[in-house]
Design a protein around this nucleic acid. Structure first.
Lengths: 255, 255
DNA sequence: CGCCCCCTTGACCATCGTCAATGTCCGTGG
DNA sequence: CCACGGACATTGACGATGGTCAAGGGGGCG
């Protein structure tokens, strides 16, 4: 655990830049910790060995003790329904935090599985809580992260409840685009690390519907698809599509 | 503000029982504050004049500064879509906290409107945050409340994304029932303070569908409906209906 | 090289939304 | 007190969106 501590402590500036580029951006960057604080935060973090595709980071029902920040790769969280089917509740990209829903009952209410080779930082929650006593801005930041999660989930609820298949898929792609952009990656060309089936599961759509919508988007020159590689060609048009749910029998209706 | 302080300080046990019965249960009860702490919490709380049906507690886009605990009555939170339509994101019963989603951007991302005459306690967030410095169990409780909200929202996402109209309505009724039960009210007979339209909006269903489902539930003797008064007759059967989404073309399929 | 999983496409059908008509309750004002 | 208007609820008929079933193609990994 924490196999890079030695180097980090020796090259402090390197450490900082690590935190800026990496998984902890969501946690550290917005609050401008002083070096000393970054150091303290860094010391409670354990860098775990990489997960291979399909490996579980934590399992539904397990005792909660840490939250995790994604460094590289992607994960999905899901739970299993009565009949053993998977219900995907979220995808997590680099710099994003997962595991927060475990605070409630000291148990993870979902499982988390790597969609590809993935590395994460483990942040023991008890340590984080203790540290947040000493660094007020850290505590406030934690509240914000949880609050933001609540906001995002509510947007997701609206999406699931009220939007058409087209709107769901468009929203999903734009959402991914935004997340990549914020990370400094291309907002228009990226790789979908999840399968069509997983997208459909997440969006409340059948695989076939996801496939059909993406094909149609392509025909209408909104996107360019090639397997898992995707390019957003006309983001503006997609944005419009997402914003409205009526008065907009737009471009997509006729092929 | 805090118009009962004088009495409360004189009759401390009365104060405690107030907090136990009332809106603050969600915040206070699970953490067994000592009297002194209850007192400190109580001092930052402002009891506002009652809201009449239709009045707004806070408005989407307004500066965030407080969370609210419902004392009596019900509220809904919603936001407005591009075309001016309402998107209901939650209903809040006595003892429940609302406003947490404002922490993120220091702005309420939704509006909150009273569905009937409603009283709330206002809890200025800055004070709450400061107080949570001094009472560690209070801070932990805040984390828990937010985490629980995340869990609930995720259940809601599954409901919206994957469930049939029957399952949605059944879940909704059982959810309300549980909330009333926990409050010490009847779990089987209660009044729906929201309209069918609002239920539909919340569940991602048309009014007509809500109406039809409830009529069918009544025919099948799962519930008894009389306007806004509702009685759950066969909760077990409803539970089954909610749990499964297949292998269960049950009682409801034929009328 | 071959298997398996994932993706795509088509045909069909169920669920649920839309439209329209009618009924009910309630508050307001004549 | 009753008549009226408006919001809410119910019910039926119809049609569209999207799920299901089935078949076929393609790509990656052993």
């Amino acid at each position: 655990m924490a196999y890079t501590h030695t180097q980090q402590n020796r090259f402090n500036s390197k450490l900082t830049s690590q935190c800026q580029n990496c998984s902890l951006a969501a946690l550290c960057l917005p609050i401008a910790l002083v070096d000393e604080d970054v150091n303290r935060l860094d010391q409670i973090i354990e860098r775990k060995r990489p997960l291979k595709k399909g490996e579980l980071l934590f399992r539904q029902g397990e005792k909660f003790d840490s939250v995790f920040a994604v460094r590289t790769g992607t994960l999905k969280t899901f739970n299993l329904t009565g009949n053993g089917e998977e219900q995907i509740t979220g995808f997590y990209c680099p710099s994003e935090l997962l595991g927060l829903s475990g605070i409630n009952n000291d148990i993870y209410p979902v499982s988390a599985k790597a969609l590809e080779t993935t590395t994460v930082c483990e942040i023991p929650f008890s340590h984080l809580e203790a540290l947040s006593e000493q660094i007020p801005s850290l505590k406030r930041q934690l509240f914000k992260i949880m609050s933001r999660k609540i906001c995002n989930d509510q947007d997701m609820m609206v999406l699931l409840g009220k939007k058409s298949a087209d709107e769901k898929v468009a929203s999903f792609l734009i959402n991914l685009s935004d997340r990549f952009k914020r990370r400094g990656y291309s907002a228009t060309a990226f790789r979908l690390s999840m399968s069509r089936g997983e997208i459909g599961n997440y969006l409340g759509l059948a695989v076939e519907t996801v496939s059909r919508v993406m094909t149609r988007f392509q025909k209408n020159e909104l996107i360019q698809v090639e397997g898992k590689e995707i390019t957003l060609i006309d983001i503006d048009e997609m944005q419009k599509l997402v914003g409205k749910n009526e008065d907009c029998d737009s471009i997509l209706k006729f092929e």
